[in-house]
Each structure stands twice: as structure tokens, then as C-alpha cells.
Amino acid sequence: MTEKLSKSQPYQPLLLRIIHNSQGIFAVIAMITAFWTYNTYDGRFGKISWLPDWQEIEGIHGTFGLFALLILPFFVVYTVHRGNKKLIQENSFIQLKLINKPIWWYSLHRVVNTLMIFSLTFATFTGKMMDEKWLPQGELNHFWYYLHLISLLILILTIGFHILSSIKIGGYPLLISMIEWHIREKDNWNLWLNNLKVFTENWRKIIKTEWAKLSPHFKILELTILLIIIGSWILSILK
């Protein structure tokens, strides 16, 4: 339902909410099932005894990990082109010297957001490099398995800091704005079809224009992550 909201109330574009929340849900479920998989087949670094061993959990983890990987390029492209104000800026490290000032928290939030995207990329890449037969066969010392465990720990930390820094700069209203159902007129579904038609008819020009708008460091960021994602598919096929 389209509804007028207070201008002072945080509002997130509908497309951002769809992509961001889908990415977040799949990533969180993948992390939960990853721990359950570790708990079932490994447990060398600590184990929850009351959590039952479930042989099928690895397949479930792989499925949600795949969903997270499939959404990731769309999330990256949208964030870099439409949400880059929330990513690391060219002067972010200079602003991080202004400790405890408002700009320090905003800069920290941007750095954390960028690190979270890289940690998600790292987790999906290392997961793609694994073989689903390793753990059931008791093969626990593979290089990619260790890297995948490390990547999941990093991802947990970056998501945690992402939530905490979001609360710090925007409070709970900012978090709520990511899950609210209300949409403004500019996000009306009727406009989506027209925007899609315009894009399909002029996609080359639009992509060229969007790319030209990006700062050099955002171009590097987008290319790096997209190449890693493409590489994960190519390497998984080759191996």
C-alpha cells in the first residue's frame, strides 16, 4: 500500500529493501546452517552437545549459500550505484581520525558496510570452492574448508558491527525502515514496469552513463567484487 510518511521518518527505497533484506535473510540462514554443519561433522573448536547431528544440514547450508551468492551481484551493483553514500569514501580514513565526533561514526559505518560486502564475497567464494563430499567423508583439513570457517567468523563480526553502527547513527527507526511495508509514490509498482521498459530499450546507454558517474575507487570496488563472483563460478566448474 502506498502511504504518505513523515519526512522526518527514515525511508528506504523499495528495491533496496527487497535486495538488502533478501541478501540478509539468506546470509543469516546460511551462517546458522553453517554452524549446524560444523557442529554435525566437525566440532573440533567447540560443539553444542544438545544440537542434534543432522546429515542433511550441509545440503541446506549449500542451498542458502547459493541463494546468497546469486543475489550478491545485484546487491553489489545496487549498493555501488544507488547507495554508495553508505560505502567507504575517498576521505573516510581521514575522517576516522576525528574520534567520537559525528562524522567519525558515519565514516566507521561506511567502512563497516564495505567490509561486510567483502566478507560476504569472501564467504560465498570460499564456500563455492568446497566439495560437498569433504565433510561427510571426514575430510576436515582442506585449505578451502578452513578459509570458509574463517570467512564465516568474519562475516558474523561485520554483520554485527553493521547493525550496531546503524543503530548508532540512525537509531532503531533506521532499522525499522528496512523492514516496513509502506511505500511512497515514487516506488509505486506501476512505475516499475515503465522503468524496466526504459532500461531494456536503452540499457547500453544507461550502463555507460552509470559507469561514468562512479568515482575511481567505486569502479575498482565494483569490478573487484564482480570479478571474484565470476571467478568463483569459473573455478568451481574447473575444479
Rank of each mutant, 00 (worst) to 15 (best):
2 T>W: 00
4 K>W: 13
8 S>N: 14
9 Q>S: 08
10 P>F: 06
15 L>Y: 03
18 I>R: 08
21 N>I: 07
25 I>P: 04
25 I>V: 10
26 F>C: 06
28 V>S: 03
28 V>A: 12
29 I>H: 00
32 I>A: 14
34 A>R: 02
43 G>Q: 11
50 W>T: 03
50 W>A: 08
50 W>L: 03
51 L>Q: 02
52 P>M: 06
56 E>G: 11
57 I>G: 08
59 G>V: 07
70 L>Q: 04
76 V>F: 06
76 V>K: 02
77 V>A: 13
79 T>W: 02
79 T>N: 04
81 H>L: 11
83 G>E: 13
83 G>Y: 05
84 N>Q: 10
85 K>I: 05
87 L>H: 02
88 I>F: 00
89 Q>H: 14
90 E>K: 10
98 L>E: 15
102 P>R: 12
107 S>R: 05
108 L>H: 02
108 L>P: 01
109 H>P: 01
110 R>M: 13
112 V>H: 01
119 S>D: 14
120 L>W: 05
128 K>H: 12
129 M>D: 00
133 K>T: 14
134 W>Q: 13
139 E>R: 10
140 L>V: 10
143 F>D: 06
148 H>F: 01
151 S>M: 02
151 S>P: 10
163 I>H: 04
164 L>E: 04
167 I>M: 02
167 I>F: 12
168 K>P: 05
169 I>R: 05
170 G>S: 12
173 P>Y: 05
175 L>Q: 11
178 M>Y: 07
179 I>C: 00
185 E>M: 04
188 N>M: 05
189 W>N: 02
194 N>R: 11
199 F>E: 03
200 T>G: 02
201 E>C: 01
203 W>L: 06
206 I>R: 08
206 I>M: 11
210 E>K: 14
222 E>I: 01
224 T>F: 14
227 L>N: 04
232 S>K: 10
